Amino acid sequence: MSPTALATPFLAAASGDGGGYHAPEPQEFYQPLIGHGDWALTRPIVVMAISVGLIAWFLLATTKRASVVPSRGQWVTEALHTFVRNSLARDIIGSKEFLRFVPALFTLFSILLVNNLFGIIPPIQFPTMGRIGFPIALTLVVYVVYHTVGIRKKGFRNYIGGMIPKGLPGPIYILIVPLELLTQFITQPLTLSLRLFGNMFAGHMLLLLFITGGQYMVIHGSIGLKFAGAGSFVMAFVLMIFEGLIELLQAYIFTLLAATYIAAALADEH
């Protein structure tokens, strides 16, 4: 993997015109390809579309001729599905309710895993979830699902009432009720999306900083700075490995929390 390739689309380093080094900016995550403004076709949209196409192709290719003795592709698909089914759906939601949520959780995990790993896989090397709209969209899906299943099971009044702790002194409810409702309907989904976005955004910006900074020092710096630039490339490579682990972990955490929220909405004591 070439660290310099990650910086190619961004043009974050100045080009020897005396302007000096320009650090990566948040606008690097917009990158319009066709058009401009809110309706532009941007790089994140294209990357997301590519990921959906790849996931659909891989799942169809590895399952259309499924056999008792699985091929490598079938084994990968079955291993991922079994992991989501057993470790995330059944263990969190419970053996009575989990089956109907397995397709949604598996789809969510697959999209997150592929799009996160795109941040370090050439030639794409762009984490889609570093664009805030995508984590928000996935969070809205989870938000609608767990509130809907909770209301359908318990009714609106019982579902809302179950969010409020019982047996507290009367005056305390003046504080507790707004806090609990704020947590369930605003804070909880907000932190779910911002956690994913923040990790993907910050990790990629850090990689860009080391790569473009190293590139600038190697091309435009003195002998000492050229050695420092080479060290920056080495650090970028180490960070890529670390970032890959973070990307795997964030896909897992987001799906785990989605399953946890569904389980809480269905729980009798909720």
Score class of each variant (00 low, 15 high):
F210W: 08
I211L: 11
L207G: 00
V177Q: 08
H220G: 04
L179M: 14
E180K: 15
M217S: 00
K166N: 10
A236K: 09
P178Y: 04
A251E: 06
F201L: 06
V177P: 10
V218M: 12
R157E: 11
M200L: 03
L196F: 13
T148L: 14
V145R: 05
I132W: 12
R195T: 10
F242M: 02
M129Q: 15
L168I: 10
L225K: 03
Q250F: 04
Q184C: 03
H220D: 11
Y252A: 09
S232H: 00
A137V: 12
G150L: 04
L245D: 11
M240W: 05
A251V: 01
S193G: 07
L245S: 04
L168F: 13
G229V: 00
T191F: 09
T128H: 01
H220N: 15
L182N: 07
L175P: 13
M205I: 15
H204Q: 07
S222G: 00
M129C: 14
L207D: 03
P178S: 11
G221E: 12
P169W: 10
I219M: 15
I132N: 08
I219D: 11
Y216C: 05
V144S: 05
R195G: 10
E247G: 01
R152E: 09
S222H: 00
Y159G: 11
I174G: 13
T139H: 03
R157T: 15
Y159C: 13
F134M: 09
L207Y: 02
V145C: 08
R131D: 10
S232C: 00
R195N: 15
F185T: 04
I186P: 00
L192C: 11
V218L: 13
H220A: 05
Q250A: 10
E243Y: 11
A137K: 08
A230I: 03
L138S: 07
K154N: 14
L196C: 12
K153M: 08
R195C: 04
L179A: 15
H204Y: 11
K226Q: 14
I176F: 02
L245C: 11
G150T: 10
I223K: 01
T128W: 02
I164V: 15
L248R: 09
V144A: 07
